[in-house]
């Protein structure tokens, strides 16, 4: 079941088209990566989902029903450009933001206490935001985003501004939220974290949705019969054993061993390759190279340009 679907969303601004016929469907309880170069239209799509702006055409369905004004309480949003009232105290501000999302004051206070204890930041409660570092403020923003336990969470570049320790903590929290049943939309340029966290992705480029699906399927789809072989022995010796069906495209080192990346041309398979090289060198490892999301991203975006 899809928690959120958009049908043929179109949004034009004065001088350019921000979104052109974008349809996505986000499965329930998944982590959904929203990828794309700068200016592709991701933020506009996120704002439409948040009802911050309205699309010119198309519709957004939440739980199968058109998005209603009250539905914003079911969504938690951490924008890319985020801030807090500098002169307000941390606790007061967190309470205010929680109540704006429809929580009662009592309930907000209870949950905030819990989270402040969990992150060990109780001492910040009476501090003004301007006294906090950027990273500290980010933590507060994260807490206020998830406090009302929304069905759908939208994080726009959540890791920017976090040190590795806090970024890792955030990652754990996101996985934890998924375990508890939330669905997470995750917009980022950091492909490493996409591979690590996302189940599904969609790639938006030039206001169009150009690639969508389960991340494992996409990566399989983009693999191009390249194998990486690490071995003990001479690279030349290995090379001499290959026939024209196989081509060494890169010579590398893996953990101090010689290694090559071999492209297999059609009508053969990896077992044949293995049997050819087996007598010549001592094989340490043999694996198929599955393209990284980074490679796929660059490849698809560049293809699309031409």
């Amino acid at each position: 079941m899809d928690i959120l679907t958009t049908h043929n969303i179109e949004k034009k601004f004065a001088n350019h088209v921000a979104l052109d016929n974008v349809s996505i469907s986000i499965p329930e309880n998944s982590i959904y990566g929203l990828l794309g170069p700068n200016g592709a239209g991701k933020t506009t799509l996120i704002r439409i989902i948040n009802r911050i702006t309205a699309p010119d055409k198309g519709e957004v369905l939440l739980n199968g029903k058109p998005l209603q004004p009250e539905d914003v309480n079911l969504i938690g949003y951490l924008p890319e450009e985020r801030g807090l009232y500098k002169k307000m105290k941390v606790g007061e501000q967190a309470l205010y933001l929680a109540q704006l999302k429809g929580l009662s004051k009592k309930e907000s206070l209870k949950r905030l206490k819990m989270w402040f204890e969990k992150f060990e930041i109780q001492a910040w409660w009476d501090k003004k935001v301007e006294e906090l570092s950027k990273g500290m403020a980010q933590k507060i923003q994260f807490v206020t985003t998830i406090l009302h336990e929304p069905q759908l969470l939208i994080f726009d570049e959540p890791f920017s501004g976090f040190d590795p320790i806090n970024a890792n903590m955030l990652k754990q929290e996101i996985l934890e939220l998924k375990k508890k049943g939330s669905t997470i939309i995750f917009s980022t340029h950091n492909m490493g974290s996409v591979e690590e966290l996302c189940d599904h992705i969609t790639l938006i480029n030039n206001s169009k949705n150009i690639l969508e699906g389960q991340i494992d399927n996409i990566r399989k789809e983009y693999k191009s019969n390249i194998y990486e072989i690490a071995f003990n022995g001479e690279t030349d010796k290995l090379a001499s054993s290959l026939n024209p069906n196989y081509e060494i495209i890169e010579k590398i080192k893996v953990d101090g061993y010689n290694a090559v990346k071999v492209q297999i041309h059609k009508q053969t398979n990896e077992n044949e390759l293995l049997s050819l090289i087996l007598p010549k060198v001592e094989i340490i490892s043999f694996k198929e190279v599955i393209p990284s999301m980074n490679d796929i991203f660059i490849k698809v975006v560049n293809e699309n340009k031409n």
Binding site: R51, I52, I75, P79, E81, R82, G83, K86, L97, Q141
Partner: peptide, 17 residues
């Protein structure tokens, strides 16, 4: 202007109109 430069405005209008 304060809300705009603080960048809190987007957080708030995702909760209220």
């Amino acid at each position: 202007i304060e809300e705009k430069t603080n960048r809190i405005v987007e957080i708030i209008i995702s909760s209220a109109r």
